[in-house]
Design a protein around this nucleic acid. Sequence first.
DNA 1: GTTAGCACTCACTGATAATGAGTGCTAACA
DNA 2: TGTTAGCACTCATTATCAGTGAGTGCTAAC
Lengths: 347, 347
Amino acid sequence: MDLSERKLKILQAIIGDFIRTAEPMGSRTLSKKFDMGLSPATIRNEMSDLEEMGYLTHPHTSAGRVPSDKAYRLYVNDLMEKRTLSEAEKQLIRNKLRSNLSELEKTVQHAARLLSEITMLTAFAITPSQEADKLKGINLLPVDERTVVLMIVAESGKVSNTTVRLKDPYSMESLELLSKSMTYTYKGKALSEVLTLDIIQTFRTDMEALSRLAANIMPNFLGILKRMLDVDLFLDGYSNIFSFPEYNDIDKAKMFLELLNKKEALTKTLMERDDGIMVTIGNENTDDRMQECSLITATYHIDGKLLGKLGVIGPTRMKYDEVISVIEYITENLSESFRLSGGEEQE
Amino acid sequence: MDLSERKLKILQAIIGDFIRTAEPMGSRTLSKKFDMGLSPATIRNEMSDLEEMGYLTHPHTSAGRVPSDKAYRLYVNDLMEKRTLSEAEKQLIRNKLRSNLSELEKTVQHAARLLSEITMLTAFAITPSQEADKLKGINLLPVDERTVVLMIVAESGKVSNTTVRLKDPYSMESLELLSKSMTYTYKGKALSEVLTLDIIQTFRTDMEALSRLAANIMPNFLGILKRMLDVDLFLDGYSNIFSFPEYNDIDKAKMFLELLNKKEALTKTLMERDDGIMVTIGNENTDDRMQECSLITATYHIDGKLLGKLGVIGPTRMKYDEVISVIEYITENLSESFRLSGGEEQE
DNA sequence: GTTAGCACTCACTGATAATGAGTGCTAACA
DNA sequence: TGTTAGCACTCATTATCAGTGAGTGCTAAC
């Protein structure tokens, strides 16, 4: 059976109304609310067809019809009109993202918060995986006689550092020498690669003073590398789900929040997603616990290379058009701000 | 009226039982469960006295008695026996805190997570306020011809940096000169103080090349200072509250989670708390929305100076003895790891 | 001072009935 | 042949009501 013009109209009406009200719609209500010159009985027949085709369900015999995941998919792909954001909304997004450029993590965290505030959903963001990033330089800077700062610069421009307190005092010469020889040894190697190396093997020196210093520094060096490889996950707007009647059931709310609490699993799920805007609806999600949720994610870029993800999670009944527009605009802006990163355009 | 030995015993029984089961206790049950050679009627009389004194309440006429906030306070101050952690628990805490020393934020975040996992409550931690911290040095390091790293070292040992991409190429000399003169100008000043200065006024130079470079750097400099002054708040274990029957009411759960979502307010509340272990029970909290919660916080130290806070929030009915022990042990260990910070004792 | 007895309270449970929005089916209509 | 009106039926929801049981408060006896 084909989706006639009329069927599409009816389906669209049901989906649109359900997204707003969360109430199953009956034939009578539909015929009154959307004046399309058809009697409830006719609509009933059409609805019955639509149900047979898998676009509608009803929770029980005497309830109205509710869109299925398949219907949402159709809606997202074909029926939905793309929302354009108002100038005020755009302004808001631009301002909030501009104001805090200096550090990747903070900016991404802010983006997640912003997204959750605008969409009223639970939002999350992950920083890019730095797997492929390579070491560019290793600096050791004197702070005081027993303290040095170890700073690692990656090719992507990411800089990480830690303060190291040493057991013994050091000389400026050995410090300089160590940083030079570390750079020499590890420059151009991928961060992940260095971590797998046996440091003692790859980095050895005959000078006693130097090797003592190195013994102090090396654990920190590895620690930083590990940290740089970490993908950070930021979540915001937990309590937003309570504004959805589908989560008035305490057990569902609990399940949802527990899902969000499994940060490792969530990070993994996000990292595996396709690039660009990706929408998965209800049963399209592989995770069991997400069968009643929709997930919308998008990709942002850093210097056109490294990819991070940003998105929302909510009930399958969500305002796909609005949410998608907002996510799109935010990721665009986020990529944009990272392009002129370092803040040269800050006021 | 005075609290006789017998009254104390009864009260303790009720509190102890209620903390475990969340069920109001009746006189009959108490007399059966805790064999203290008294009939229900006698206990009833004692309970009635205790209620008059404000230690017990009734949810309704025909329900058992429930401890009041005042009772919990008495319990925490006098009745409760301090739990000592098992060696296994201690081991767990030590290991988890040891493994990730390199960065303040991450360590604190881990501590919050650990605390929530052990106590099964919602835990939070804030990094110390750096208000009083002073600038020690400002370094500018060349990365490539248009990129430099701006690094700020504070007296506390905290190091922060950002990558700056410049509009124009720079010379090594001007870079060095700028970093020296910035250090000269701002060294010894409090971070917060520098932020209030009119940078253009305090930092001026006659050299054209230098002032152009400075114009690029300064906004980043201020950005970093701002960030260093930020107090980070980490929260963990949101969904733990669902294991408490008192939050089976969806509205209460919502309220609670919304309270946690107000991060600024929460940070402020935490920062204002006294040092050391501090327990506020129910109506002892000033915040309206926390009248049914208890808050336990403790202070950790960084190098014996800067103070951060760590704690849990949960229903007034909580296992004060256990929670307090855990918090104590974690803050102790946290302070400890920051004392030998930099990781020289890492394996 | 302690206890037994008794009337009373009140949340909770389960059964029953009324309500109403909705469906499916059939037969009549254009 | 597509559309519509009519009607019986379904079922979640709500209200009502009685029964149950854990608990209290009070009084009088021990």
